[in-house]
């Protein structure tokens, strides 16, 4: 009995630094945030519980709703685009061409660079006389004002996020592609399937768990977009690119409404949770293990 205890003790010693840190800096804040979301705390004056007042208030808060809608728009467009492009890119990268290593390095480059720097670079490219509009002007007469227009600011942000994310997911997908056993293709060829049929009936089904994983990852991170927004639009014009985390940040650290902002952060958590659950529920229909 005594020996066992010692064994446990050693194990706990190993665990302790991480567990203590996690408890203080992660677990406690998670609970504190939940408690705070039922108060009107401003971080300065004494905390007062106000029940579910914050959540009711959120329901009526126009700016919060707008940020939510904007975020769904951003997610709904950027995630499918990112996934489709990364699948195509992964298939291309799987081809045996010379210098494929160089391509991989280049494709992945946007992903290692800081989102804030990326935002700064792209916002200079999206200016009215910037290179993007110079190219577009060759084809159409009045290129959009991008960041100066409520209609086009979000598409600009989406372009940047697809550009930044595609390389990352393509590399994960490529690893999945390379794991597809060769005999599956051979069998398909013998059955007379052409390239397209091979893609639909072999590649996609076998790759589906990886695509599924990538979609979830992309969705979760799309609900947390912040840096790019700060560098490119600051939520504008008007509230056209005000997204969830940007709104949470402003509410918490500009208006100092800690309680209210905590309630928003829990809504964010619930959305991410729901999206993940829905994905897992529906995966049976299209994911083949």
């Amino acid at each position: 009995m005594k020996r066992f205890n010692k064994k446990y003790l050693v194990a706990f010693m190993f665990l302790l630094p991480s567990l203590i840190g996690l408890s203080i800096f992660v677990l406690y804040p998670i609970l504190a945030s939940l408690v705070m979301s039922f108060t009107n705390w401003d971080g300065l004056t004494p905390m007062k519980f106000n029940g579910i007042e914050n959540y009711i208030q959120l329901w009526k808060d126009e700016t919060f709703k707008i940020s939510l809608i904007n975020n769904f728009y951003y997610t709904g467009v950027s995630v499918p685009l990112t996934i489709i492009f990364s699948v195509l890119l992964a298939i291309m990268m799987n081809a045996k061409v010379k210098g494929i290593g160089v391509f991989r390095v280049l494709y992945f480059l946007p992903n290692v660079t800081a989102a804030i720097a990326v935002g700064v670079i792209w916002s200079s490219m999206f200016t009215k006389e910037g290179p993007i509009n110079q190219v577009i002007a060759l084809f159409i007469e009045n290129p959009p004002h991008w960041l100066g227009s409520s209609l086009w600011a979000m598409p600009a942000i989406i372009i940047v996020s697809v550009w930044k994310g595609v390389g990352y997911f393509a590399i994960i997908l490529l690893a999945g592609l390379q794991g597809i056993p060769h005999h599956l293709y051979e069998a398909a060829t013998i059955d007379g399937a052409n390239k397209w049929k091979q893609f639909i009936h072999v590649t996609v089904p076998v790759l589906s768990p990886v695509i599924f994983f990538c979609t979830i990852m992309a969705m979760i991170s799309s609900f947390q977009v912040f840096d790019t927004i700060v560098a490119m639009t600051e939520g504008g014009p008007g509230r056209a690119t005000n997204v969830l985390v940007y709104h949470i940040y402003n509410t918490a650290f500009l208006d100092f409404e800690f309680g209210y902002a905590s309630a928003m952060s829990y809504i964010l958590f619930i959305i991410i949770l729901l999206v993940t659950i829905i994905q897992f529920r529906t995966q049976k229909r299209w994911v083949h293990y």
Binding site: P29, I30, Y266, F269
Partner: peptide, 9 residues
């Protein structure tokens, strides 16, 4: 759990 939940506390 997203980082934003823990950000304020």
């Amino acid at each position: 759990i997203p980082d934003q939940v823990t950000m304020i506390p």
